[in-house]
Design a protein around this nucleic acid. Structure first.
Length: 311
DNA sequence: AACCGTGCCAACCGCACTCCT
DNA sequence: CAGGAGTGCGGTTGGCACGGT
């Protein structure tokens, strides 16, 4: 037995909003507010619209300070970074982009960013230009045996590795794994965390939660090692670091067309943070644009995210 | 000029969650 | 505690615009 519909679908109007409807809704909300009840709102105004439709129209279009139009490179970076960290939680991602709505971000990802990613991957594969690391080469060689020419190697692509990471996150804990596991953060955040200690800045994180996250990290990393080993990747001894770092480097190349394997190799070999860690999403290596730097606090993004979920 | 394919985005749908009684 | 009502969210769809043939 399904739940009752929120409104009478036979009487409500659907489809695009007219300027008159927009004006009625905007004027009423600006004057009276939503009243905490979207279902009743259209009846009060005299709109033949579903309450949910009114809410959506207000949030996505009529609300003040809504920003439409092209996304900036900084916004691109934030979207990509957060997508890697937390997946398709568009409302959370949009919350980090002032004036942007979840619908906007979602559409932008689906129509532009994702294609840019896959497009570059395809272009690069067509040119037989492959990452130089042995791990990725080994991985793609395995995958290519199973793929046709057009879609080849996608199972081994950064996209799917991201998916793997996210699936593992969700297995463990859909929210806190991404927050507490620095392995899943952009390197710039890991650098920030190492300096500022994300957990220590967040008084809401309990000792029990920290302990949980620690064991969770071990379990998650173990699964990463196991999964990468099954997938024919590099040896487990380096998988924990190199896997994530390679994803980052590959994504940068995929999105912006700038290979960064040298830096990844340096980090792997050196085993520590390098200067390049701070700009893995930047457009121009000579003019780094760190996606986390434009916020007043470098880790404010995750603090905001944590606060939303009362972590 | 007409048709077709593609991209884009606003809006819808339905599920899951929260709140309230 | 249970159940209903309202809300939030992410996935999907419909339709318009535009470019190519």
């Amino acid at each position: 037995m399904g739940r009752a519909p929120c409104c009478d679908k036979a009487t409500v109007k659907k489809g695009p909003w007219s300027p008159e409807e927009d004006a009625m809704l905007k004027n009423y909300i600006e004057e009276h507010g939503t009243g905490g009840n979207w279902i009743a709102l259209p009846h009060k105004i005299g709109l033949k619209r579903c309450g949910k439709s009114c809410r959506l129209r207000w949030l996505n279009y009529l609300r003040p300070n809504i920003k439409h139009g092209d996304f900036t490179p900084e916004e691109d970076s934030i979207i990509c970074s957060l997508y890697i960290s937390i997946g398709s939680r568009w409302s959370i991602i949009a919350a980090q982009l002032p004036g942007r709505t979840d619908n906007d971000v979602k559409n932008y990802w689906n129509t532009k960013l994702k294609k840019r990613l896959l497009g570059r991957r395809k272009d690069r594969d067509t040119q037989h230009h492959r990452p130089s690391t042995a791990a990725v080469a080994s991985e793609t060689a395995t995958a290519e045996n199973m793929m046709n020419d057009g879609e080849r190697a996608l199972s081994a692509s950064a996209m799917e590795r991201i998916q793997l990471c996210m699936q593992l996150q969700e297995l463990q804990n859909p929210l806190s794994a991404a927050i507490h596991n620095p392995m899943l953060w952009p390197t710039s955040c890991r650098a920030t965390q190492s300096n500022n200690s994300f957990n220590s800045n967040n008084s809401n994180v309990t000792v029990a939660e920290q302990g949980q996250s620690s064991s969770m990290n071990e379990h998650l990393n173990a699964q990463l090692v196991e999964s990468t080993a099954m997938d024919g990747l590099a040896s487990p001894s380096s998988a924990e670091n190199s896997n994530v770092i390679n994803i980052e480097a590959e994504l940068q190349e995929l999105i912006y067309g700038q290979a960064n394997q040298v830096r990844a190799a340096e980090v792997i070999d050196g085993g520590g943070m390098q200067q390049g860690d701070m700009d893995w999403w930047s457009y121009d290596q000579s003019k780094p644009v760190n996606c986390w730097d434009f916020t007043p606090e470098p880790n404010a993004v995750f603090q905001d995210y944590a606060s939303v979920y009362d972590i």
